[in-house]
Amino acid sequence: MSALEIQHLCKDFAATQVLKDVSLAIDSGEFLILVGPSGCGKSTLMNAIAGLEPVTSGSILIGGEEVTWQTPSERDIAMVFQSYALYPSMTVRGNIAFGLEMRKVPKAEREAAVERVADLLQISHLLDRKPSQLSGGQRQRVAMGRALAREPQIYLFDEPLSNLDAKLRVEMRTEIKKLHQRLGTTIVYVTHDQIEAMTLADRIAVMRDGQIQQLGTPNEIYNDPVNVFVAGFMGSPSMNFITAQLEEGDRAWQLRIAASEGGELLLPWPEERANQTLADQCGQKVLLGLRPEHFAEAGDQRTGHQQAVQVDTQVSVVEPTGADVLINILLGENEVTARVGPDCKAQPGERLMLSIDMRRAVLFDQQSGQRLA
């Protein structure tokens, strides 16, 4: 039985349809992340699951029980908000215990629950402080502690790290990951941060315009995107998209890319990845998708491979990041981003020989944006 099941959920605000026939099922103990750009409907979906927003149609089931029209207090959930929502007049101890007190949990059980989650989140030394005496990261731990004290069926996290600085976000992300591994709880987590999604999730639901574009593991979402939107949204820097003409070569398919000054660049498509869909696209314009890490300096043994295609490119921008170097290059008429090793000495305006791992490239229909191969 799924811990959470959403069936054909729709939500309208006046004439605007915010959620459009959303369906998904989450297993017990699973960490699901809803990700997408602002306005895609992910927070509305979260609020519908929590009971904070009535739906227009569809069903929500928690633990096999329909809760579509139940109030938030009647659903076996706990929510961690972006704003922490702590009571400023209460101590940390009081904030964590408040929900249990409202549910008439005996005092001894409340105190035991507070001690348990405080120890789990390493905030035992903060129990007698007020929220105003805490840092942002400590406040977020208290908000999480208040939810964990409940032990519900499902935890809902609504962009809980968005108010933290970059370093603290990384630290809290690690803590949430450890917490889930330790407790095995079911979590639905909303974020617009793709790094959070990739590092935390068991599965990711990528949303756009009120619909789920793709639901899959981080590896599936990143390496096997179903369309241009998912491919471009996930990944930093994002995937490069290059217009090319698909045609039949001497032994297999090849991609013809227009180059500056009337030249052309030919890239072979891996023979083992040819299919009937590609045959139907012969002679048509397609979009070639290459991630920055699909490139490497020619001769780089760490990332090289026997089938790599070598191309001579011109460097326009160099961005050292420490662990690697991002370079903007001209591939045909297209400026694309390549991720190369930290020892790359290329400078803007210079020529650089790169290899492209075409085995990992993807092709999309230029009109619909759907994946072809």
Rank of each mutant, 00 (worst) to 15 (best):
R256F: 05
T186K: 11
Y189P: 06
E151H: 11
E264L: 10
D193S: 07
Y155V: 04
D280F: 03
F241I: 12
Y155W: 12
A149P: 03
T191V: 01
P237E: 09
E247S: 14
I257H: 01
E247L: 11
A259P: 13
L156A: 06
N240P: 12
R251F: 13
A252Q: 13
I187G: 08
A205G: 11
V206Y: 01
R256A: 12
K285Q: 15
M207T: 06
D250L: 13
L179T: 05
E272F: 13
W253L: 15
A279F: 00
R173P: 05
M207C: 10
T243Q: 15
E171G: 00
E247D: 13
Y189R: 07
R146G: 09
L290Y: 02
R173S: 06
A274D: 01
Q213D: 06
K178L: 10
L215K: 05
A274C: 02
Y222G: 14
P218R: 08
L148V: 04
S238K: 10
L278G: 02
T243V: 14
P237W: 04
R173Y: 03
R169H: 08
N223M: 09
P268C: 14
Y189A: 07
E159C: 07
S236I: 00
Q214F: 03
A252V: 07
A279S: 05
R251C: 10
R208D: 00
D280E: 12
D209G: 08
D193K: 07
T186H: 11
I242N: 04
D250S: 13
Y189E: 06
S236F: 00
R256D: 10
Y222M: 15
M198Y: 00
T186A: 13
D193G: 05
L215M: 12
Q211P: 12
A197V: 02
L200K: 01
A201M: 00
V190K: 02
A274L: 00
V190F: 05
D280L: 09
H192Q: 14
I212G: 04
R146M: 10
V228H: 10
R150K: 13
P218S: 10
A149L: 02
Q181L: 12
R208A: 00
G216W: 03
L183R: 04
E261A: 15
N227C: 10
L164V: 12
E272R: 15
I176N: 11
M239W: 05
M234K: 05
V170A: 15
S238P: 08
S238E: 12
Q181A: 14
E264S: 14
I204P: 04
T217G: 11
